[in-house]
Design a protein around this nucleic acid. Structure first.
Length: 844
DNA sequence: CAGTGAGCGAGCTTCCGCTTGACTT
């Protein structure tokens, strides 16, 4: 038995450290936090002294049990979680939960996973820093209070199931305000002047005028002035310049670069990085530090000298400037610089390549450039043209890597200019005046939102990716596709002494995959900004972070801070709950020509809707849902009225009615009992019977059984998780090993039989008569299942001895106790309701 | 999966950060 137990946060880290420490040390992982506030209640004593109620998280019970056993046997327990607020709290929760003996417990910290750093840490243990722990408790409790007090206000005043929080609500606000900036933007046109000249040797180059002309007339006049002009080099300046490499990657900059260069989503970047980390190829991927260990710098230097030569090497230190950075780790870098590339999964390899290059470049010398600025004067007017050239005289770090940019307006790269002398006569080949429009602000991408959040100090490396998923899952924001519009612009061209006018066209405003707010996102943001301005303030996090820092330094008591925050915040919550109007995004569009009743749109219980009439009318109002691609704030009266034509009966096909309608998942055609989705964005009113029949036939063909197995049909399709085959309600994913388009009968049988065996292996108990069974489930847990009802058990529950009575009891407890509400609503409806509920819950 | 929408009112929803990994259609 090892004498020492070391506890770190991540299992991959545990593995590495164990190698450094030898056989007297056993290194285990806590898998992050082990305790947290309960999810079903506030869990904070707001009346009293804000005492938090901590519980061991259900999925950590087994971990805690294991660590407890090991700790009992060890002579010394070393708490080695990260040296930041959260890490300190983890160490504290471990000490409390495992009931560690103070004499036998030591707290150690290190910022890099190197042998020397670990050994040094072991020699310099300390106790738990309770000030830092308190700072974490303040952070945790504040987030809980904000989230769990604001969300219910939204349920009452906007719509059920919504959520608000310090991070997510501000993220959505950023996107909403950006969208409004874009909507409110009106482009201004002006004329940009470009020219081409050639020197006495006949070598040509491009130049431009530093100013634009606001009208076509002025531009025309200017071009005409140049028709008879002589041109010469009025001024020529050459100066050396330097470019320095960017700092090594943090989580945020890695996400941005992977988005710009590899087109990865933020979550894809993190998944790929996690794999590389687990394979021991890179350092920890959730970090806000740009620091490299001495060992890493030496490794990079050796590799640079070896691969590129001594003059390419330059040791550099980088300073972090991110707000609220806690720097518990190194920057993201390869663990071994000698590994230039890795032969694994394609995307992992590409991400590794990016990390390797960025890290290596960060330790390389500057690139040296020669910049040339030329001013060109004309004999007939005072304006001067300019031409800029750039020549790389020593490539330095550029040999390896250049950081990408988000700037869309970037001029084409300055290239080389031909040799020229001051006063040299130049020949003009042409001058153009092109109508250019100012551009609206750019919408956020996932990665540029992360960048903005980091600048504001909002969120942490471990939460950037989840936050972006949350605001999309909550339907506040979506990745939109916006079709651009054609726009004409004119271009005047002076050539051979005459000015010609042409009209050209360009596509503007198209955007793909950018973050766009939904109706709900806008309504919720408006509501929160109106009533909780201080929480939605972009500097709210920065302000409370300053308080947390005071607490961490021991200068402020965390409970006092919470009291002053809460006494301010809570009365506002109560007041808004009581007095604020509902926020429904209502717009009145006009009057129904038939009845004269009011036509309005608003957010209803089930989403955006249009209604004719009001509740005060004698007759019940008519309702219709907006289609998924329509917005409350932009729908027109005509579009709204059209929605009442649905569902529309198109006629009959094979003796069945064909009906077109908008559903929860977009427009669809119903044919008998079968549903066929229409392509996204289709206007259901434009669909004719013939179109529908084509679609129905296609669908029938696609659904046609490809094989019969045990007298049951086998179908194939492509779902969210790739190609699959379906048999007897079993979905079987078909991986790349198989040719899904041309599956042979043998392969189909093989796939089905393997799946059946898997299903059988899952079952631990099966009481067929009662229809209750116990199955293996995710994360080493088990489920008790009866029909649609599923009870997920904690990891620690041993099910091998479970009896039917126990299982039935569990099912009983979970069975919805529904009173028979109305005679008209039979059991079927109730059953249906639970199913819908389940599927929506699963989706989240 | 493809309905509904007010009102009875019960019973549900929710946060941010630290981890990993089995599972969706």
């Amino acid at each position: 038995m090892a004498k020492n137990l070391v506890i770190v946060e991540s299992p991959a880290k545990a593995k590495t450290i164990e190698k450094f420490l030898g056989k007297d040390f056993k290194v285990e992982s806590s898998f992050g936090h082990i305790s947290d506030l309960p999810s079903k209640e506030l869990g904070v004593d707001v009346e009293g002294d804000f005492n938090p109620k901590y519980e061991v998280s259900t999925d950590k019970k087994a971990v805690v049990k294991k660590l407890k056993d090991l700790a009992k046997k060890a002579e010394m327990v070393w708490l080695a979680s990260d040296e930041d607020r959260e890490g300190e709290a983890i160490a504290w929760h471990l000490a409390e939960t495992l009931k560690l003996d103070k004499e036998k417990t030591k707290r150690i910290v290190f910022h890099e996973i190197t042998k020397s750093a670990i050994l040094k840490a072991i020699e310099n243990p300390r106790g738990i820093d309770y000030d830092l722990v308190d700072a974490q408790q303040a952070r945790r409790v504040l987030d809980r209070i904000v989230g769990y007090e604001l969300s219910p206000v939204l349920w009452r005043k906007v719509k059920g199931g919504l959520s608000a929080g310090r991070v997510q609500s501000v993220s959505v606000r950023l996107i909403v305000e950006k969208e409004r900036d874009i909507q409110g933007f009106s482009p201004v046109a002006s004329y940009r002047i470009d020219a081409e000249f050639s020197n006495e040797d006949g070598q040509s180059f491009k130049a431009k005028l530093p100013k634009n002309f606001s009208t076509k007339e002025e531009a025309q006049k200017f071009l005409e002035k140049n028709a008879q002009a002589d041109f010469k080099v009025a001024d020529l300046q050459q100066k050396p310049a330097k470019k320095s490499p960017a700092a090594p990657f943090t989580t945020s900059t890695l996400q941005q670069e992977a988005s710009r260069k590899l087109y990865f989503s933020v979550s894809k970047t993190m998944t790929m990085a996690q794999r590389l980390y687990e394979a021991g190829l890179i350092t920890y991927m959730r970090t806000d530090s740009v620091n490299l260990s001495d060992e890493a710098k030496k490794g990079a230097e050796a590799e640079i000298r070896n691969a590129y030569g001594d003059k390419y090497s330059k040791s550099r230190n980088y300073k972090g400037k991110a707000k609220g950075a806690q720097e518990a780790h190194e920057a993201i870098r390869p663990t071994n610089f000698a590994v230039h590339s890795v032969d694994i999964d394609y995307d992992q390899a590409r991400l590794y390549d990016l990390i390797w290059k960025r890290s290596i470049a960060s330790q390389m010398s500057e690139a040296e450039l020669e910049r040339t600025n030329v001013k060109i004067s004309a004999s007939t007017h005072k304006e001067t043209f300019t031409a800029n050239g750039e020549v790389i005289t020593f490539d330095g770090f550029l040999k390896v890597y250049l950081e990408g940019t988000d700037d869309e307006d970037l001029d084409e790269q300055d290239g080389m200019l031909p040799a020229m002398k001051t006063n040299e006569t130049l020949l003009n080949s042409y001058i153009t005046a092109t109508e250019r429009y100012t551009r609206p602000p750019a919408r956020y991408t996932e990665a540029s939102l992360v960048k903005k959040l980091e600048e504001l100090g909002i969120g942490r490396p471990s939460t950037y990716a989840p936050t972006i998923s949350t605001i999309q899952n909550r339907n506040y924001v979506e990745k939109g596709t916006i079709d651009g519009e054609e726009r004409n612009y004119s271009q005047l061209k002076l050539q051979d002494g005459t000015v010609n006018d042409v009209t050209l066209s360009e596509k503007v405003g198209s955007d793909k995959g950018k973050l766009v707010p939904t109706d709900i996102g806008m309504i919720v943001t408006d509501f929160l900004v109106n009533h909780f301005e201080s929480i939605l303030d972009y500097s709210f996090t920065a302000k409370v972070e300053a308080d947390f820092d005071e607490i961490a330094e021991g200068k402020e008591d965390w409970k006092k801070m919470m009291r002053s925050f809460y006494d301010n915040f809570h009365p506002i919550v109560e007041d808004v709950k009581e007095n604020a109007d509902r926020e429904s995004g209502e717009r009145i569009l006009g009057e129904d020509p038939k009845t004269g009743k009011r036509v309005s749109v608003r957010l209803g219980k089930f989403g955006p809707m249009v209604q004719i009439g009001t509740v005060d009318d004698e007759e019940k109002p008519q309702f219709a849902s907006l289609s998924p691609d329509q917005q409350l704030n932009s729908i027109t009266f005509e579009e709204a009225m059209d929605l009442f034509q649905l569902p529309k009966n198109l006629g009959n096909f094979e003796d069945e009615e064909v009906v077109v309608n908008n559903g929860r998942f977009g427009p669809y055609v119903k044919f008998g009992d079968a549903y066929v989705s229409l392509p996204k964005g289709t206007d259901p009113l434009s669909v004719e019977l013939d179109d529908a029949i084509v679609l129905i036939k296609e669908k029938q063909k696609a659904d046609a059984p490809i094989y019969m197995y045990k007298d049951l049909p086998v179908q194939k399709g492509k779902g969210r998780f790739g190609p699959y085959i379906k048999w007897n309600n079993l979905f079987i994913n078909v991986n790349k090993k198989y040719d899904w388009d041309n599956l042979t009968d043998d392969e189909i049988v093989e796939l089905i039989e393997v799946k059946i065996q898997k299903e059988i292996d899952k079952v631990i108990h099966n009481w067929e008569e009662e229809g209750i069974r116990v199955e293996k489930a995710r994360w080493g847990r088990h489920n008790v299942i009866k029909g649609k009802i599923k009870v997920e058990l904690a990891k620690t529950v041993d099910v091998t001895e479970m009896t039917l009575e126990e299982a039935a009891k569990l099912i009983e407890a979970k069975t919805p106790k529904k009173k028979a509400r109305k005679k008209a609503a039979p059991k079927k409806a109730a059953a249906k309701k639970t199913t819908t509920k389940k599927t929506t819950a699963k989706k989240k």
